[in-house]
Amino acid sequence: MADPHIKSKMDWLDYVTVIAYRLGFTLAAPAILLLPWEVETGIPAQQLTFLAAMLCASSLHIYMKNFRLILQAATWGGLICAIFGFPLFGLGGAFVTLGGLCFKEYFCFRVPGLRAQPILLAALWLALVLNATLTAPMVVQGLAALSALLFLVTAVAKWRMPLHFDIGDKTKYEV
Rank of each mutant, 00 (worst) to 15 (best):
residue 54 M to E: 13
residue 55 L to M: 12
residue 57 A to G: 02
residue 57 A to Y: 12
residue 57 A to K: 10
residue 59 S to T: 05
residue 60 L to K: 01
residue 60 L to H: 06
residue 65 K to N: 04
residue 65 K to T: 11
residue 68 R to Y: 10
residue 69 L to D: 03
residue 69 L to Q: 08
residue 70 I to Y: 06
residue 71 L to M: 07
residue 71 L to K: 08
residue 72 Q to R: 06
residue 76 W to F: 08
residue 77 G to R: 04
residue 79 L to E: 11
residue 79 L to N: 09
residue 82 A to Q: 06
residue 82 A to C: 08
residue 84 F to E: 02
residue 84 F to Q: 03
residue 85 G to C: 12
residue 86 F to G: 06
residue 86 F to P: 01
residue 87 P to H: 13
residue 88 L to P: 00
residue 88 L to G: 07
residue 89 F to T: 10
residue 90 G to N: 00
residue 90 G to A: 08
residue 91 L to K: 04
residue 93 G to H: 04
residue 94 A to D: 00
residue 94 A to N: 01
residue 95 F to I: 11
residue 98 L to N: 03
residue 98 L to P: 01
residue 100 G to F: 14
residue 101 L to T: 07
residue 102 C to A: 14
residue 103 F to V: 04
residue 103 F to H: 14
residue 104 K to S: 01
residue 104 K to A: 07
residue 107 F to A: 02
residue 109 F to K: 02
residue 109 F to M: 07
residue 109 F to P: 00
residue 109 F to S: 01
residue 113 G to Q: 11
residue 113 G to L: 09
residue 116 A to W: 07
residue 116 A to L: 12
residue 117 Q to R: 03
residue 117 Q to F: 06
residue 118 P to M: 03
residue 120 L to I: 09
residue 121 L to M: 11
residue 122 A to M: 08
residue 126 L to W: 09
residue 128 L to M: 15
residue 130 L to G: 06
residue 130 L to D: 10
residue 131 N to A: 15
residue 133 T to N: 09
residue 133 T to S: 12
residue 133 T to F: 06
residue 133 T to C: 09
residue 134 L to H: 11
residue 135 T to G: 06
residue 136 A to S: 13
residue 139 V to F: 14
residue 140 V to P: 04
residue 140 V to L: 10
residue 140 V to N: 13
residue 142 G to T: 01
residue 143 L to K: 08
residue 143 L to A: 10
residue 144 A to N: 02
residue 144 A to T: 10
residue 145 A to N: 00
residue 146 L to N: 00
residue 147 S to P: 03
residue 149 L to H: 13
residue 149 L to S: 05
